[in-house]
Write a protein that binds this DNA or RNA. Structure first.
Lengths: 196, 196
DNA sequence: ATACTATACGGAGGCGCCCTCCGTTTTTCA
DNA sequence: TGAAAAACGGAGGGCGCCTCCGTATAGTAT
């Protein structure tokens, strides 16, 4: 259940008007794009412009700058968790696992472009970080267990282990894009069942 | 050798003029004070005012806001390391150790008031953090070894161990002042040589 | 002691950014 | 279809970073 899917106003419980809902979605996408292009310091004006709305509209949906950051982050986490669930219906469990881990690396890379701002959001809302970590860990576990049950992945690691390995790798300050990709390939090879 | 003690202009190598030197020191102290009072988001104007100088003077010494943050941090680290060296001449090795650890806790508390800004400084200047950690670790070790040689401290831990214990404790987001003090007392008791 | 120069000071003001306010527009519903 | 409710847009207030340049002062040569 994501923030928008509720589609209800803060206090009334009434559904959002269609234009408001459309603009909300546009704004979150615009913000993600602008943060990726210009970094976490991008201006509110730039985000509104990218979304094709006025700043007033932006501030109607997100009263403070930090609220935009939080919304983008929540949406990223939702997408990542959602991707795991899609993967559960995919034909090949191993491909699903590989695909999800690639998605995780992309997610982590995007996060790094506005890490400072995110840090503030975590400070303001202490539950946000652990709750997200928990959801992501569980998603990872679902995909991994399915691959393990199909005999496609070694079964002496669990989702927590895997996140413990991949997450810090992605966060390292000096990780290049190529390096991340190569390390992921190595991790994937290590994840296959040992041939003996 | 601290930044000011060189007392020389960036390129000329000539010594700083007396008023410039005086204002530099005032500005660093003022910035530390203002960050402590108002948090890391304090304005440049507030810092200049606290130092009793114009903003122009502030910017002459520190071209960018981040340079002020870095200067305060460097000064804090210098003071902390300097305190260790003073402790080496103190009468009682245990008191020196205890005093230094208290100074470390105070240093860490001060750091937390402008952690976000400091994080940026570390990003901009990747050597700063490891170099400082190294200096502080070495200082800790000097004080600790002296206490150990005097038989005042248990000798199955080293300076690195101690920092590894105290540093994360201080950084924890929800540490209260009292809690920090109580935990330090406990650590100090644990540091005494085991009675057997 | 004095005059001269290099250096430093101060603060008004430019610019950009966050956010508010309110007149205008759009959606919703009877 | 018409009126009320909801949302939109963007000008502008206020603040914060930083620049610029006229003024003041420390250092130096005579």
């Amino acid at each position: 259940m994501t923030a928008v899917e509720e589609s209800s106003s803060e206090h009334t419980g009434r559904p959002m008007r269609a234009d408001a809902r459309r603009n909300y979605l546009r704004l979150v996408d615009a913000a993600r794009q602008v943060f990726a292009d210009q970094g976490g310091g991008a201006s509110m004006e730039a985000i509104a412009k990218q979304a094709g709305v006025g700043v007033g509209t932006l501030y109607r949906h997100f009263p403070k700058r930090i609220d935009v950051v939080e919304a983008v982050y929540r949406d990223d986490v939702d997408a990542l968790v959602g991707r795991a669930d899609e993967g559960m219906e995919a034909a090949d469990p191993w491909d699903a696992l590989e695909g999800w881990l690639r998605a995780y690396v992309a997610y982590a890379r995007a996060k790094r472009t506005f890490l400072n701002e995110l840090h503030e959001a975590f400070e303001k809302n202490p539950d946000l970080k652990p709750a997200s970590r928990e959801r992501i860990g569980a998603a990872c576990n679902r995909v991994l267990v399915r691959a393990q049950e199909a005999g496609a992945a070694r079964d002496d690691v669990d989702g927590e282990d895997l996140m413990q390995l991949v997450s810090p790798m992605c966060m390292a300050a000096n990780l290049t894009e190529d390096q991340g990709d190569r390390l992921l390939l190595m991790i994937l090879d290590g994840l296959r069942p040992p041939t003996r």
